[in-house]
Design a binder for these strands. Structure first.
Lengths: 173, 173
DNA sequence: TGGTGGAAGTTGAGAGTTCAAGCAATATTG
DNA sequence: CAATATTGCTTGAACTCTCAACTTCCACCA
């Protein structure tokens, strides 16, 4: 959803428009990404009572030593801003799935800790979520396509990473 | 962000967990999608004063006959709900980039029409947006990868489409 | 022709996100 | 060691999105 004046590319320094084929690829990407995010959000909101991102946060915590992570680490790992994470953790705390703990070695620091309830919610709804992901993505792709998707997305993600040879951001603002 | 108890898959009817490799692919997808959407939103918000989705709506209108589309058609084409579109068009109307028009043949119907101002905003910011997309995606992928990405995302999108051999939804609720 | 069911679109409230500003604690530097 | 800059995280307001009504109008059919 974004480009195309008339023909393909401009003569010299003008904007390098997307070719028709590039446009088709981009459009497919946007559509799939929109539908997929929407689909997973809806599935998890219905079944587990939280959006997809929040579920992802619980998973990250569950995989971490002592089920805990510093706020900034969690934010970086989930690729979201600290602000967004602050609000998210506040909400997850209200639901009883996460608890905050002070960091002993740095009085500014906070740990987000997965509670037992949080772990239970995760255990209870993981199968349904995996199914949704399978049905929407993996079951429809050949092994080669899956591999390809992984490589492609890894490249794109790296390019947008604060460090990743591309950006100059102090990490997402 | 979502799956993995310990090993790969369960014996019988149990949930089919993602393999380690599938998990890596999925993680890469989520990260790239999150970073990309964030990046484009920020770019467009800064330069053009609207989020990526809204920009996409203007593009759809610009490509349509008489720069207009019925609300439902626009919503379907952009893969968003009617409700979301209603709010979005209200906002774009306030900004002066879109105007609503009654449909003569169906008194319930509304057209969303791109205004001249809207077209100008689009013309003014398209180059910057194309650049952003190129830098983040196309410049980093080989032609084969681009082709592959297109095929993969087309498949995923089709699977989540209301009709597309998969869902039973009255089109997104 | 007058119900009745469905389609088109909107609305408002609640939830989530962004952005800029802010506070407190740590690191750095002269 | 006292300024000063930086880091870690939070906050509130403005904005966007979702969900569940709700209104209006069309289409169908007896």
């Amino acid at each position: 959803m974004n480009t195309a004046p008339a023909a393909s590319s401009a003569p010299a320094g003008g904007p390098r428009w997307l070719t028709d084929e590039e446009q088709r690829v981009w459009r497919s990407y946007i559509e799939a990404a929109t539908l997929l995010e929407d689909h997973l959000d809806r599935q998890l909101q219905r079944d587990a009572g939280m959006p997809h991102v929040y579920y992802g946060l619980l998973v990250k915590l569950a995989e971490s030593p002592h089920r805990r992570l510093r706020m900034t680490e969690l934010a970086m790992s989930a690729k979201i801003t600290r602000s967004r994470l602050s609000h998210a953790i506040a909400r997850l705390e209200k639901s009883g799935w996460v608890r905050r703990e002070d960091c002993p070695s740095d009085k500014r620091g906070q740990f987000a800790v997965l509670t037992d309830e949080g772990q239970e919610v995760l255990d209870r709804h993981a199968p349904g979520h995996v199914d949704a992901v399978r049905q929407a993505v993996f079951d429809r792709l050949t092994p080669e396509q899956q591999k390809s998707l992984g490589e492609i997305m890894r490249i794109v993600a790296e390019g947008l990473q604060p460090n990743g040879a591309g950006a100059d951001l102090p990490w997402l603002r």
